[in-house]
Design a protein around this nucleic acid. Structure first.
Length: 215
DNA sequence: ATCCTGGTTC
DNA sequence: GAACCAGGAT
């Protein structure tokens, strides 16, 4: 029998097509974006990224005054903490001469630990970086994945890693699959599975518990 | 004009 | 369990 998670993926992929994430020019931009997008939507992050544009070099960001950095990223919300988080990340990134290739050589589990160890980077942000900057196959657990799986009727673990491992257990270790899966879940949460869901014409309706509650 | 959404730290 | 914030929805 076909694993349920694979089925969800297939249906989402069929409906939305390939997402080809992350929307960033470089791994560095991707990683900064992942810190900025904590607790906000991409709109707000994009504005911040545009303001950062003229200074978007690791060396410059690393040595930028933190107050000025905070002002530039204001639109992303929580700008004071996020400025600190970016600084903490830069300190770590500097140790590798801002060279993503060098970091990529670190094995999966060690790198995940190292990222989580950076102040301001938790499991979700670490995993997003692992998938989209370092090309490691990992399932990203976020508020959208939790909401969608919950509504579908799955009894998922509350813990981050419990949730993640349960999904990973049934899926092949393919980067593209995990890259697309997270992107597809985000897209689906925005288009149909919002806080106030639009169930009519939902591509997952036939496998969703919610359909039973529709009039 | 108030309410809601969204990760991590302390 | 509170604190950190802007921007969109209601």
């Amino acid at each position: 029998m076909q694993p349920a998670y694979q089925l969800i993926y297939d249906k989402l992929f069929e409906h939305y097509g390939p997402q080809s994430w992350w929307p960033a020019e470089t791994p560095f931009e991707m990683m900064i974006g992942s810190i900025l997008v904590q607790n906000t939507n991409w709109r707000n992050v994009d504005k911040a990224l545009i303001k950062l544009g003229p200074y978007f070099e690791p060396e410059i960001i690393d040595h930028f005054p933190i107050e000025d950095l905070a002002q530039l990223i204001r639109s992303s919300g929580f700008y004071n903490i996020k400025a600190k988080r970016i600084k903490a990340f830069m300190e770590w990134f500097r140790q590798y001469d801002y060279d993503t290739k060098r970091i990529k050589a670190i094995n999966n589990t060690e790198l995940r630990k190292a990222l989580i160890n950076i102040h301001g980077i938790g499991k979700e942000t670490a995993d997003v970086m692992l998938v989209y900057a370092f090309e490691k196959p990992i399932f990203v657990v976020d508020a959208y994945a939790r909401r969608i799986f919950y509504r579908l009727g799955y009894n998922m673990p509350t813990s981050y890693d419990g949730f993640r491992k349960l999904v990973e257990k049934e899926l092949p270790e393919e980067l593209t699959l995990y890259n697309e899966f997270h992107a597809l879940l985000v897209e689906h949460a925005k288009q149909f599975c919002r806080s106030k869901p639009i169930c009519k014409e939902c591509p997952l309706l036939d496998i969703c518990d919610q359909r039973l509650e529709l009039k």
